[in-house]
Nucleic acid binder design. Structure first.
Lengths: 343, 343
DNA sequence: GGCAAATATACAAACGTTTGCACAATAACC
DNA sequence: GGTTATTGTGCAAACGTTTGTATATTTGCC
């Protein structure tokens, strides 16, 4: 049951492997007749080109690696789909690794990808990664790098980021406009620029309205649901009447905690999340959130790779993608129909 | 910036590539001294073994392919994680393709994987695939095959399936016990054995209670939310007071439709879904559903691959994984605390 | 010290492709 | 009909590893 090779085809047709290779590659000076007979034989034998040998010989690979923290997050799986939608038609396929938010797994993933000779790596680093040194060290510039969402700005290559600052700014402003007076934030891991920018946007919004920024109601490293519940309890104790959450799972926790404590949402407690996870639309009340446009980011990341790869430029391209504020029920004190505010 | 090879290491150390290879591969008769110096040099140069060349030479690959309909479905992404958890430590990595439920994409994915010389393929076929002919044709037995969830029983290789029959049986029985008298079903694509078995379980449950099976309230090909809404409207017209849904997105649509029509759930209308998607817990009322144990399935699928691969047996192993009925609010007429019924 | 056994390294071929170069056969030209 | 393009194929080397076999070196033994 050994896989047929071009040698098998050549032997069967009494020609040389090189002719077969040329015939299959396209029309590089091969007669129409032989090309047809080669193609017929190939499909008859069920021949599939051996990418390993091909890539090895050509010195280039058709594989692009992707590293994401978790594949089962709506955001990341949609980025993957978005990238795939561009890369597959361009003849590339994706090798996907999960970092599980761990530095060790991220390193291992990078090594796996490099060993697999990927043409490029599209990644969003784990929350444990404090800087890009390990990335620089393992890739050593041997591969085109595209970072998205969570990026280290000192690394070479393209960067696709959300306009986190403006998004968080608008979200917070929206809470202020709805009359909330003491607005805290469940911030994410501040090693990540994305979360820092959200925090900055939050602060700026408060300041722009003459409100004071109070570190007591800023809760870093709060992304998962349980942490959201835990920190919201503290926030409420400290007099918060609203939270801007840098992640939807934290927002979900905030909602559960607030309701658990008998607070009416949104009348007594306001919430805006970030990411537009599918469940935010389905909770009662539904959660207002910022849309990250994952599919679009995937598209752009893939396109950035193709650009770098073809033009061979290592330029520090940075693309900023706008976020949309999706206003649902947890943040609006008078009933609204669903509204979308484009930044 | 060319990547260092074992030849570079060999040259730098004045030894031959073969010694370097042996040194890096482990202790096959290489002196401790050279092994150490090779390792030092390797990490100094940032050497990473070229998997393409290695696999080509050894004739085996460290890559396992996976084909799933959609990566952003909770079920599938968790199966992937489950498989990864077994395969990564075993030295394999995953090449993932999405079929988007389309036959053409599935074929293309298979070809991609075969071309990439994967050691095995773990897959769940698309809803457009009516039989396994294309799979047999493209793989030609050159690769270990493991199917999960949606399987074609006539294909060789291992199969990991849920106990769909018993699950649907229990779900329907549960609705009956809660006093619903005219129970319909939103069934999935019946080309798939998984959905057929769920339908059979549903029918058996009705029959076991002396209730009649009425084709008018059996709605095939209903998996997505919109279809769920649409078909539920018809079901209600036809006098249904409950639905067993073979998918959670359909169940979500059913819930929205029923509430939209002013029906009180669960008092006037009962719903049980399938898959335990994350949102089922978060809707109001929360949706009772069958848990598919995705991570576990991934584990078992990966383990099945490893077994086939090492023992080189092509045996028709079929593993059946039990489903759990998670009783939440949409199906219980008197308040309950969350309960889990193990099959 | 001489021989056998054990140890460490080198040599060379192979995995399946691709591709520059050479060559043969045909076609085109004066 | 001889020279030159043009076209179609073959030859052989190369990509970076791995590995069977051969060779050189060391060790152990009497």
């Amino acid at each position: 049951m050994a896989k047929p090779t071009i040698n098998d085809i050549a032997k069967a047709l009494n020609i040389t492997p090189s002719t077969v290779s040329r015939a299959l590659a396209g029309n590089t000076r091969v007669s129409e007749a032989t090309r047809l007979s080669v193609e017929r034989k190939a499909s008859e034998l069920g021949y599939e080109r051996n990418i390993l040998a091909s890539s090895l010989r050509r010195g280039v690979s058709d594989t692009v690696g992707m590293i994401v923290p978790r594949i089962n997050r709506q955001f990341f799986s949609n980025v993957i789909s978005g990238a795939e939608a561009i890369l597959n038609p361009a003849g590339y396929n994706l090798l996907i690794c999960q970092s599980h938010e761990r530095l060790e797994d991220e390193k291992r993933g990078l090594q796996t990808l490099i060993r697999n000779q990927v043409a490029g790596i599209i990644m969003s680093h784990s929350l444990e990664s404090e800087n890009g040194n390990h990335i620089a060290e393992i890739t050593r510039g041997s591969v085109k790098l595209v970072q998205f969402d969570r990026v280290f700005s000192d690394l070479p290559g393209a960067k696709i980021v959300n306009d986190n600052f403006t998004g968080a700014f608008l979200a917070t402003k929206h809470l202020i406009k709805n009359g909330y007076r003491r607005i805290g934030t469940l911030a994410g891991g501040l090693v990540s620029a994305a979360y820092r920018e959200r925090l900055d946007g939050y602060k700026s919004a408060l300041e722009s309205e003459g409100m004071t920024v109070d570190d007591d109601i800023i809760f870093p490293d709060t992304v998962v649901r349980d942490k959201g519940i835990e920190r919201t309890a503290i926030a409420i104790e400290r007099g918060c009447d609203a939270l801007y959450c840098a992640g939807d799972y934290a927002a979900l926790g905030a909602l559960e905690c607030a309701r658990g404590k008998g607070l009416e949402v949104p009348r007594q407690f306001g919430i805006v999340g970030t990411a537009n996870e599918i469940f935010t639309e389905l909770t009662t009340p539904s959660i207002s959130t910022l849309e990250l446009n994952a599919f679009d980011m995937g598209n752009r990341a893939a396109q950035a790779f193709l650009d770098i790869n073809s033009q061979n430029k290592t330029g520090l391209v940075t693309v900023t993608v706008p976020m949309r504020l999706i206003i649902r029920e947890t943040s609006v004190r008078k009933p609204v129909t669903h509204t979308i505010a484009e930044i």
